[in-house]
Design a protein around this nucleic acid. Sequence first.
DNA 1: GACGTTCTATACCGATCGGTATAGAAGCGG
DNA 2: CCGCTTCTATACCGATCGGTATAGAACGTC
Lengths: 194, 194
Amino acid sequence: MGRPREFDADDALQTALELFWRKGYEGTSITDLTDSMGITKPSLYGTFGNKEELFRMALQRYEEHYMAFFWSALEQPDARTVAFDILRGFVQAQTEACNPGGCLVVNAASSCSDAALEIHKTIVERIQVGQKALARRFERAKREGDLPADSNPEDLARFILTIAQGTAVQASSGAGRDDVYRLVDIAMKSFPSS
Amino acid sequence: MGRPREFDADDALQTALELFWRKGYEGTSITDLTDSMGITKPSLYGTFGNKEELFRMALQRYEEHYMAFFWSALEQPDARTVAFDILRGFVQAQTEACNPGGCLVVNAASSCSDAALEIHKTIVERIQVGQKALARRFERAKREGDLPADSNPEDLARFILTIAQGTAVQASSGAGRDDVYRLVDIAMKSFPSS
DNA sequence: GACGTTCTATACCGATCGGTATAGAAGCGG
DNA sequence: CCGCTTCTATACCGATCGGTATAGAACGTC
């Protein structure tokens, strides 16, 4: 009942996601958003609440649409394949020509004026969730004899995600995909096997 | 001649540097700056020009005071020591208790509203300068037989700086110094020797 | 076709953004 | 003490920030 909205909320959210991805949370203004989404401010606030809620929805969409590879990589049979798939997945997302460069999470992790403290906390928390999940996967690998008995799963998880975060900065700075792929190959030499 | 200024410009610049370091370029407002520096806006503009010039001066001071280890590391005798010293130096600066977390350059590299495009360009350029210098050092090492003949100096330089950028994100996210030191040790396993 | 509901358009809100005009206070050489 | 210069304090500038009040337009229901 009532007047139907004249825009597709999903399309609009996707547009917002891309803006936040490219310009960060604080670097993206409401006017930027409404202009690109092709809607007016009351429509934005009526549909998405406010800027912070909109960002959180965009973040969730980002994880679902662009970070899905992470959770499927965890299901790979051996630790080395898990690590390699994760790194390749990150690089692919960060350097896709049709995507903004870098990583929405890493870009947002650095923007931290006092007003955006809550956003920053959320971002850090999302990173921790991924890191913990990867560490648990590596613990399992260690139990299964898939990683050496003297290896430290937490350290390895931190290592892999640090590489991913570093490549995000590289991608934001204009590094090419092939450059970063070779970098992943170098990093993987550190990864213990069997 | 004329009335002498009532504050120490160097102290004020240091304060500005720490603010930019912690909150990024756009996350730091003029009011934040004047409050922390203990001076008024006309004094700030009279002494430092404007916000962008102040940031550039802070950036220069940052490189001189906190990134000096980079250039002295380049003078180490072998490539492996160069790489290791650079990584340890970055981690030390990024996790020093009396410093803000992370890296001023990396934090600023991600904040990119339309208004800060020039700052972003400068930041990317500073990263490239360091990366090129390191690549040249590795080229020399290759000529000197210090690195394998089939190694790629540019890729190795990118690898080292990617680790440094990744650890900056980790440090901004609250990782401890020892955690990151162990991470450097893992990364260094990838580094070719002799 | 009137009604209640939901969306849209315009115009506006106080607060803050980076930056500055103006006037007075503090030092110098004469 | 006097200019002259330089810094400081207050008060202000237009623009933009995130967010909203109000009125009208577009639907389904009765």
